[in-house]
Amino acid sequence: MLAVGAGSFVFRVGPQLLFQRSSLSERADRVIRQAGIAAITALIVVSTKSTATGSATVPTLAALVAAIALAAHGASMIRLLFVGGGIYAASVIAVSLI
């Protein structure tokens, strides 16, 4: 925990100190922000892959498809959790009955 924590703090504070005196171009700033979006997207894929196993595959994908549609329309996290979670639970029941 200490080692990962210390390294994580270096990742966090490093750019703050590095870019304190120099500034990034507009384009570099946009690319970095998009890299942040890519990072979260990759985490979504990894976490979905670990959830979508066995009988949970269809419920996970169903919940995610619905959540993507809602998220694209600006739904809040609470709404995503309720709707996505509800679809997931309903799909789990449906799959178990088949």
Binding site: I37, I40, A71
Partner: peptide, 27 residues
């Protein structure tokens, strides 16, 4: 299941922008 749902809420609005959509698909 809550993990991907939480994370999706953070980038959902980016889906409305063409450039960000491309980034999301490639990533």
């Amino acid at each position: 299941i809550v993990v991907p749902l939480c994370l999706l809420a953070l980038v959902g609005s980016a889906l409305r922008d063409a450039g960000s959509r491309r980034v999301i698909v490639v990533a």
